[in-house]
Write a protein that binds this DNA or RNA. Structure first.
Lengths: 235, 235
DNA sequence: ATATCGCCTGAGAATGACCTGAGTGGCGTC
DNA sequence: GACGCCACTCAGGTCATTCTCAGGCGATAT
């Protein structure tokens, strides 16, 4: 699954590059197109496992691109990128297939998570479990359920994304900037302090669980002062 | 990886030369450019493994240079040099792809470390481990963890940078001035005594570990009186 | 032997990173 | 409309870290 082939289609160079580079970095093989027509060409040529497709484009919009592809018998699932106000109805109607959508501005965590989810469904390889695990921490990406030492904790959407990012990078120190860039929307303009706040929330929820024997759990979230945060077993 | 090819771009001759010479000394093949336009030319000609790029330049700023390069299909990762105050606005979003940034004034250690990190990621050769080793001393650059004889020791950021510099130059005597020039910011104006202080801190942390058999470890940090310091196995 | 010099290190002040409680406002639900 | 949840801001407190300074000690030279 980390070898999947993607095609990214967006007319804005910034977004296209942002997606292309970070998805490559996330382990995908990525091809990019800047408009609807060349997208159709590229997709029929490469027959990718998934297409990330902007809805609003000058020549053909994303729906039209999809329609033509289907007409030609290409059935790669699509992750649409839409503006928040884009006719909710049209978009939701499309998610009935294997498809899904993300609204702009998005966070990279969001996009990667959706892609992973779609691929999990379409390439139903048995080993493709939707459960992330680190130590006694489990996260089910399908049910959105998180357990610490078997105890279910419930997280807000942002807390969930932050934790997923930490889990996907366990054992590695992540700077506040890195976290901000991945977990928050790409146009976020606020203070990096927000990361501290959410780390604080997460700690309260997953690092203060009491074990059945009455003892507290070992903390998994660690601060590397002056560097960043890390998910790791304490020693 | 120590054979990587870099392009350094900065309009200030001092900074450009500082970077070029010390990166060459660090084992890289370095080409330099003084402005955005010639940078684009040089980069497309040499297709380097990485570009060190100042953001504030008279003709084209660093972002514009990157944009044009991407447009031309050049995907070399970029390490941006920025002033401390324009960090939050434009710089966010850079740590997602292969790119990263360092704020001016920087320390050379910082720059070298970031370059190594980016190359480690982009040229994901399996052997490119993020672990430095000398004798029974290990430094994991991902988790920022240091072990002496298997025992985890906890270092402050400056201690960490100093030790990394010593490890990258083990077996070589480094003068206090050299250390100051590499580990501290280039505009640092204080006393060289600070090096003595930090060497002292480091010794306390990594040269006073007790082995499982109860014996102390052999010191690795040695003073060459009148010359400098050296990391080396004692004989 | 003694003076000098370089280095070592403890103490302390200043700084700044980080943590968290409290509060505001937006949004959806009942 | 009232409520609750959530995202986010702000500011005060805490504590690690950075840096300075000065006394002591050992090495080196005369």
């Amino acid at each position: 699954m980390t070898e999947a082939r993607l095609v990214v289609v967006d007319d804005e160079p910034n977004i296209r590059e942002l997606l292309a580079t970070s998805l490559r970095f996330a382990g995908f093989e990525v091809f990019a197109a800047a408009d609807g027509l060349s997208a159709i060409q590229l997709i029929t040529d490469t027959s990718p496992d998934l297409v990330v497709l902007d809805v609003m484009m000058p020549d053909l919009d994303g729906f039209e691109v999809t329609r033509r592809l289907r007409e030609k018998g290409v059935h790669s699932p699509v992750l649409f990128l839409t503006a928040k106000d884009d006719t909710q109805d049209k978009v939701t109607g499309l998610t009935v297939g294997g498809d899904d959508y993300v609204t702009k501005p998005f966070s990279l965590e969001e996009v990667v998570a959706r892609i992973r989810a779609i691929l999990r469904r379409t390439q139903h390889v048995e080993e493709n479990e939707a459960v992330l695990t680190y130590a006694d921490l489990e996260m089910d990406e399908d049910s959105h359920e998180v357990r610490r030492a078997g105890v279910v904790v419930d997280l807000s959407p942002t807390e969930f994304k932050l934790l997923r990012y930490l889990m996907l990078n366990s054992g590695r120190v992540l700077s506040k900037t890195q976290i901000l860039d991945h977990v928050w929307d790409y146009d976020w303009g606020g203070d990096a302090n927000i990361v501290e706040s959410y780390i604080s929330y997460l700690r309260r929820k997953i690092d203060t669980v009491t074990l059945p024997d009455g003892n507290p759990v070992q903390p998994l979230i660690h601060t590397k002062r002056g560097v960043g945060y890390m998910l790791r077993q304490s020693r």
